[in-house]
């Protein structure tokens, strides 16, 4: 039996492996959420936190680019009833990040054991199906190879004046993910999607982590 880790536990596990996350928190009260937003500053994103909702955008469960308190309150009112429909777990508030949407993950193969995946993220993961794999563990050079191999990855290296993505940071994220996979046999599957990347920022905006019932953080 596999179960999905909660928002907090997922973050805790990823932080332990130095996998950078978009600044955010889960809130059940609007006022507390507002306090948090005032600390981190606009623009922000609100999304439903229920682990039962796989594709949040399809359910209208994400509101992005909220610039001020008014927009924030409106989005909160809109999403609150929606999250109640699914197992109510409150709403996640995050700093708004722009840039390329990438994805990375871990799978366990019956033959080869832990496998690291890297590819385009967001909706592109489904349309382009451009992802590639390495059997874990991988080193930084192999991680760079994975990025280099991704079709279209040229746009990540500052194509036509776009800011260049920090490949070193991205590669390190993959290496850390590989370590997480090899050191935690009870972590069955990890989907980091999207990973927002712009210039020197490489941060995981959404993580789904499946673990076995023996898993302990």
């Amino acid at each position: 039996m596999k179960k999905l880790l909660s928002f907090e536990k997922s973050n805790q596990l990823l932080k332990r492996y130095n996998i950078p996350l978009v600044l955010g928190g889960r809130y059940t009260s609007l006022e507390k959420a507002l306090d948090f937003v005032n600390k981190i500053g606009y623009p922000v994103v609100i999304k439903i936190a229920s682990p039962n909702v796989a594709h949040k955008t399809e359910y209208g469960g994400v509101e992005v680019d909220l610039e001020n308190e008014e927009e924030f309150r409106k989005a909160w009112q809109k999403l609150w009833p929606l999250q109640e429909k699914f197992q109510p777990q409150g709403l996640v508030v995050q700093k708004m990040r722009k840039g390329f949407e990438l994805s990375a993950g871990i799978e366990r193969d019956a033959q080869f054991g832990p496998v690291v995946m890297f590819g385009w993220g967001g909706i592109f993961i489904e349309i382009l199906k451009q992802v590639n794999f390495r059997i874990a563990p991988i080193n930084k050079e192999q991680a760079r190879g994975m990025i280099d191999e991704l079709q279209g990855s040229k746009v990540l290296s500052g194509f036509r004046g776009r800011p260049q993505i920090d490949w070193g940071k991205l590669a390190q994220l993959l290496v850390n993910l590989s370590a997480l996979a090899t050191e935690n046999p009870d972590v069955l599957q990890v989907d980091l999607n999207p990973i927002m990347s712009e210039g020197s920022i490489v941060e995981v905006a959404d993580a789904r982590i499946y673990v076995s019932k023996n898993f302990n953080l």
Partner: peptide, 8 residues
């Protein structure tokens, strides 16, 4: 196993 994994 998966083709992609063998390839890797």
């Amino acid at each position: 196993g998966d083709a992609e994994i063998y390839e890797a």
